[in-house]
Design a binder for these strands. Sequence first.
DNA 1: GACGAGATTTAGTCATAGCTAATTCCGGAG
DNA 2: CTCCGGAATTAGCTATGACTAAATCTCGTC
Lengths: 217, 217
Amino acid sequence: MPDLTVAVQDYLKAIYVLETSDERVTTSALAQRMAVSAPSATAMTKRLDELGLVKRVPHRGVALTDTGRLGALEVLRHHRLLERYLVDRLGLALDEVHAEAELLEHALSEELEAKIDAELGFPTHDPHGDPIPDRELRLVHDVSRTLLDLEPGSSGSIARVPDGDSELLRYLGELGLVPEAEVEMVAQAPFGGPVTVRTSSGEHAISRELADRIAAA
Amino acid sequence: MPDLTVAVQDYLKAIYVLETSDERVTTSALAQRMAVSAPSATAMTKRLDELGLVKRVPHRGVALTDTGRLGALEVLRHHRLLERYLVDRLGLALDEVHAEAELLEHALSEELEAKIDAELGFPTHDPHGDPIPDRELRLVHDVSRTLLDLEPGSSGSIARVPDGDSELLRYLGELGLVPEAEVEMVAQAPFGGPVTVRTSSGEHAISRELADRIAAA
DNA sequence: GACGAGATTTAGTCATAGCTAATTCCGGAG
DNA sequence: CTCCGGAATTAGCTATGACTAAATCTCGTC
């Protein structure tokens, strides 16, 4: 596998993430996620296909090949290891690390990756709770329940929060909704109403939709 | 100052270093240092001039403007801080850090730069002994004597070794000629002959030219 | 003061990755 | 089964930064 350009790596990562939620990865979805125009996305998917990284079907979307998936996982590993490192060793806040890791992930050599991995004791999850692919790029897929699955009156601990949206992360941090934190489900209002939880910082009401994006166990 | 591209930053750094040794920075010297063809160097110096980063005189060479010098010092600060960090906190070897820092220096945000600086206790020199520009990009210029200036029979400590050539650094490391190390000048052969020094690992003879590239105090 | 070697610049291309405008395709509504 | 709207693609450009081949300048030598 020759060296992939930064742009190619970013597209692979984006396609990987899109594939994980929706299985159909359309041009427009990809363009939106990469914040580029649709023609740019079309052009890039053609190149990725030529490079053997995706299978492209015109007007139908793309799917990663095995090679492409490995490329995506490599970037994801860099990203998540760096996030873990920046939080654990340099004290960055949970809402800052995503952007920093985004910058650094393409400049991480395999040697440095290994040093960081060892220094951290081979961590399995990034600070948002997302799994880190291991050295062989295997990724455990923790099937997770969300806050919504907690029965009123019962407790659990936060397993994962959405990454990437730093506004949201800052807000969640203020509510004490961070990975590892203990939470108690107080109430779930009916008719799509809000959900009330108790954290170390007190009782807070959040929307059902947000609660559903937070994994808990 | 709008964002400088990676290439522009690399050229600024190269020009800065060349200016420090020779004052005339010629197209061919620049092309050689950047491992690029002469026409490529010419084209880039034109762009740098348009950006107000250098003053270019056709067929005469370039000189950094104040703005250009600041750009170069910013990159140099990133580079040397990262080197210090990689050696002190991640245990990279002296001959490996240059290449790693080269990769990372363009991906370092100002926030992370500040965190690293604080974490290291605001270091003044990188692991090769080169000074690190401070937050205001001021650079102390240690006027230094070299190994050659040590009288036979006298001792000193290594202040600085050349960076960038990892072969050479590995060799110097084997001889115990690393920054901070104590060294005794045993003899300097006449007629441009070799220089013999004693380090913790014993007596070693090196060429006059090499001895002159090693700073000692 | 002219000459020629070597340094420098100009001319013309290429690859990457983005854009807008215009066109074409696909799938659902009638 | 046709038509239409939105998605996707094609066409044509732009900027960055590299290259080779060809032309030109500069400077030391005679």
